[in-house]
Each structure stands twice: as structure tokens, then as C-alpha cells.
Nucleic acid binder design. Sequence first.
DNA 1: ACTCAACATGAAAACGTTTACGTTGCCGCC
DNA 2: GGCGGCAACGTAAACGTTTTCATGTTGAGT
Lengths: 355, 355
Amino acid sequence: MKTFTLPPLLGFGGSGQARMATATIKDVAREAQVSVASVSRALNGGRGVTAETSQRIREAATRLRYMPHAAARMLITRRTNTIGALLPDLYGEFFSELIRGIDLAARARGLHLLVSSSHDDAAAAAVALRAMQGRVDGLLLMSPHADAAFLRQNLPHDLPTVLMNTRLAGDDYCALSVDNDGGARMMVEHLLAIGHQRIVFIQGPPGNRDAGERELGYREALVSHAPDSPVIMLRGDFGEESGYRAGQEVLGMRPRPDAVFAANDMMAIGCMAALREAGICVPEEIAVSGFDDVPMARYVTPPLTTIQVHIAELGGQAMELLGEQIDHPDQVMTGIHRRVAAKLVVRGSTGAAPG
Amino acid sequence: MKTFTLPPLLGFGGSGQARMATATIKDVAREAQVSVASVSRALNGGRGVTAETSQRIREAATRLRYMPHAAARMLITRRTNTIGALLPDLYGEFFSELIRGIDLAARARGLHLLVSSSHDDAAAAAVALRAMQGRVDGLLLMSPHADAAFLRQNLPHDLPTVLMNTRLAGDDYCALSVDNDGGARMMVEHLLAIGHQRIVFIQGPPGNRDAGERELGYREALVSHAPDSPVIMLRGDFGEESGYRAGQEVLGMRPRPDAVFAANDMMAIGCMAALREAGICVPEEIAVSGFDDVPMARYVTPPLTTIQVHIAELGGQAMELLGEQIDHPDQVMTGIHRRVAAKLVVRGSTGAAPG
DNA sequence: ACTCAACATGAAAACGTTTACGTTGCCGCC
DNA sequence: GGCGGCAACGTAAACGTTTTCATGTTGAGT
């Protein structure tokens, strides 16, 4: 079998930068004088190959700058080593932190990350979902329009999936979301603890899950810790403007509330603007607090007391959960529903901390 | 050839949710009574197939919910229809906008997006770069440590690549960056136009490309429009703290500067804090301006005059450029270097606008 | 010395596509 | 009526892996 056939596509001649097409496993096999099977074994598990042949193969591989062809491996292995993240139109810190958390956890598992973001409507999300078919081993899904029907329609039922912050609780899928409820309770307890009695809540957009849970936490905390305090709601939509309007409404209330808890930071900031314009001092006359701990929160005057959620952790834990699901496909994990903790950050706007 | 062999893995029985493994092209071929070649033809170009057979094939495909196996296609086609984005550790709005721009442009071209983010050092970036080998048709690369040597070392020379905001100008690669220079000039011209004479510049971190270009723009504008105005530099590092310290230095200067131009918004905000503490009114006594137009810029008091760069456009244009390169591999496009425009946003901190 | 297990290795099948190349059947033209 | 050409379609060869199976080869146990 000694033939004179040179490696067909590899360097011609000797020194250095010869233009070479990417080497395949066959080239490595020839270079190391073994069969392709041995190369595969040596480079993967390393079992079933002598230490010295393995060594020789490894050397040949690096010499040829061999990189296994991803597609070929996927084809036979039926694993892509890639997970997909389907995300809605997200902005700012939230998005970047989420991706960071996912990416880090994925990299730790040796997985690649295929992202598809900015889906405004269900149709766009469905298209993106289909396009990911077969390119990913699992799916991280955060979508406001991901109701049960949508999922059953568009999701391959055998694809491991973890839902993040979605409406439907963990009946058929794994899910993970931020502890809105607990966070809101903490905030109300804080406000009560520093002596406030009449706490008004500025709601988020109707139908929004996060907003709803935060409202729930507010109600729960009141009934369990201060059953005599009134439940006062104002409409909002997470926008700064709506917070401003809510602030104006607060001004007209008699007796005047002594604290405002907005369902997110932007509304809290808008609310503070309205109060300031009316000459009301925060926190002396009215305490104000928000939710999210956006970067801006510590820069407004006074700095905003708020609830911090570790978004990167949301992404990271979701990735962990997905990884488990991928590694143990038989194990039933549907129905698991975890929450990532929220943390109270006390700043000047509730008067309990100097800065 | 009429046999009774049922499609082996497909539904057993009839109605609805029968558990089925994913259908392959063979299943479709059998279902439509044609060869696999015809299926491929019908589903791709559609040439070389009768309209009616094509129709029949298409029906069979949808009936079986056929989705071509991505890996198999990649293997034979040698195209992944995926582009990779290698990004450093980015935060907040910048990151999310960049991804949004890239993602949208990629989707418009039918390309998937593989991201790898959060690379602090060159080693991590190199690993990530290698891992993307063969999984992508092109690369979008933004990396502070992407010098020429690094690229030549780790980048397959035949992989279309577009550099974003990197140090080395377009000698060997396509590059794209924000017009720091032009933006800074615009800002200085604005400050001069409203009557300021002594404009101090707060520098960014040494070695930072963006910071350097902004400083250059500042110098250029001064020499060309106000050669008599002094060039005054203060050290900074893009952090709010450093802006605060710079602000304190400004306070001690005699004659006192009448305007501050910080290399980014956070430093401008820090600077304003220092001035406020000293009882100096912005913009009446000293005007302050920044660069970036971070979301916070419009919420500080007074709202910050700054330079807005359309980050999404940076990503989108980079993707466009990369797409061109992928579609026309022979065409030499190395050396192209585009800049995305910057825009002056005048707000209260330079006193030229009410709010 | 003979058997049997254990082990290193190679040959070849499989994964699901695309595509170059044949093969047919049909039509028009001489 | 034979012949060339064209269009539709099928056959089979690739693509680069992993993995099963078969085949030595060795070493230990009797």
C-alpha cells in the first residue's frame, strides 16, 4: 500500500505559510500512519489507543492544524453542541446581562450560543424558532407571546427547552423567572419597617407577568404585615411618562400617601420628577421606590431605593437547567420552576440611607 | 416497486400527535414517489422539476413536517449560513444595540448569529475564535486585543471577517468604526459656537482607541476653528469617579475654563457632580458635555449635551459588509474602512436648549 | 503449549444532503 | 424514420466524521 500520492491539498514544498485547505481527519491519519478510526479515538476519548500512537496522532493533528469539521460531526453524532436563545426585543442592561449569564454558563459546558433576538410578534418568533430547528440541542426561550398553544405548535416536542420569565408556569416545560413576588414583598416590608403607612403602588402594563407578580407581592405583604394599611393602585405602563402622571395623581390624594412603590425604576424616576416639580421633598415628605435597579437608579437625585435582580444569574441558571436536560434526556424535568432571588437595595429615596 | 413498507419512523395510525422522529429527505421522496434528488431540486431551486411534481413534493414535505437536516446540508454545501460575532465584555445599551443591529441585518440575509461574548483577555478570545472554526461563514470581530499578530495567529486567513472598532486600520481586513473624530469635532464646534473659549477635555483610558480619536477630534477642531483657544487636558478613565476628580481639578484652574468636554458621558456626569458640590452652576458658569448618549444622559440634571452614535447601525453595517464579502469571496474588499456617523444632541448642560 | 480474554487497530457502514452524471422519453428536423 | 437535443428524473458519489464490527496480537492462566 505504499503509494506516492502526496497529501493532495496540503502544502507544496516546505517552509511555513504554504496555502493549505483545511486538513481533514484523513490527512491526519495519513500523516500519523494510522487509520481514521484511530485518529477519531485518540482525539476524542483517547480510549482504545496506545499512549504513544495517541501522542503521534496528536502531534500530526497540531502539525496540520487539524480542526474537526463541525458539520460532519453533528451529522453523525446528532449533537450540535449549540444551544439557541430566542429573545424578545430587549433593551439595555437587561439584555446584555442576560446574554452574559447565558454565554458564560454555556461556555463552561463547551456549548455554543445561537441567538435570535428582537421578535416583536408571535409570527416572527415562530419563524425564528423554525429556523433553529436542528441547529441546536436545546432552547432558551423568553417570549411574551409564548403561550401554551404557541409552544405546542412551533416547538419540536423532543427539544429540551427552558422558559424564562414566561407566562405559563411549569406544567409542560422547565421554567425560570425572577422572584418578583418576593422582591415586592421585601420592598413593602422595608417601607413599613421605616414607618410608612399609606403605600401606593404604581402598576405595570396590564397583562405583563412581571408587573402582575410585583403587584401581588405588594398586596400580600400588606395583608400579612399591615392589614390596616390601605391598598392603593395607580395605573402605569413601565414608561417614565406614566410614572410622572402617577406622581401627579399622588399629589392630589387626601390624605396624602407617605410612600410610593413603582413596579419598575423608570416609573419611579418619573414619579420623583413630578413630586420635585410640585416642591415635595423625597424622601422627607414622600418616600419613593422602584424595581429592577437599572444603572440609572443610583444616579438620580435622590438615589433610588429599589430591588435588584441578578439578571446574569437568571440566564446562567437557565443555561444550567438546560444543560442538565440535554445531558439526561430521559430524566423528566418538566414542571421544574425555579426563581432567582431578588435583593433589596436601600438608597436615599426612602430616606433610610444617606447615599 | 409497490411494496407495503410503511414509512418506518412516521406516525402509526392516523390522528394528530403521533410521536414521530424527524422525517428525512428519503421519507419525503418515498411519500411523493420520486427520488431524493428530485426532492432536493424541488425544495431548493425548483429547476429541473415539473411544476406538478414539485407541487406533489412540496405537499409531501409539509405533510411530513420535513425540515432539512442542517448539518448534512452544511457538510455537502460547505456553507453554514451562520456568522459569528466575537465581542468583548460589553455593557448595557451598547451591547444590546450592537446585537440588535447585527441580528436584524443577519436575519434579513437569512443568516444565523453565533455569539461569543465576554472575553477579557486575548487568550479567551483566541479559544473562542478557534471554537467557531468551521461553524461560521464569516466573522464579526470586536476585540480590544485584536492586534495584527493576534489575528494572523488565530484567524483562518480565508474566513471573511469584518473588524469593528478595532485598533488596526484597514490594511488587511475590512473595518468599521464609529466616527469618534467627527463627533468630537462637532461637539467642540458647538461649544465654540455658543461662545465658549476655554474648553477642557477629559481624556479616556490611555491606549483606548475611541478615547484617542475623540481627543484627536477635540484638538483638530480647536486648531482649525479657534487657534487661540488653549488645549487643556485632564486625565480620566471613562469611569464616573475619574470624571468627578477631573471636575475638582477644573475648580482649581485659573482662569477658570468655561466648558468641559468629557470623552464619555459617565465622566461628564461625574464632573457635573463635582461642580454641583462646589456650588458651580451648569451650564451658566461652566458648560459640560459628554460622548455616547447613554440613556442616563437625558435624566441627569441638567440633561447632558452629548454625541449620539447609532450603535445598531454599526452592527448592521458591519453585517452588510460581511454579507457582501461572503457572497463575493473572490472580490477583494480588504482595506475598506467605513465609519458610522455621529450626531450632536444638544441638551441643557451646555445651556443652548431648555431641556 | 493451548486457550481465552483483553486490547489495539483497521475496514466499512452510517448520518442526510447536494450534485455530477446517466438514462429515459419526447419533440422537431432533416 | 432516424437522429440530435432537451427536459425530467434517477443513481450514485461525494462531504468528514463516529462507531460497530472484525481482525490480528499480546499476555496470562492452565
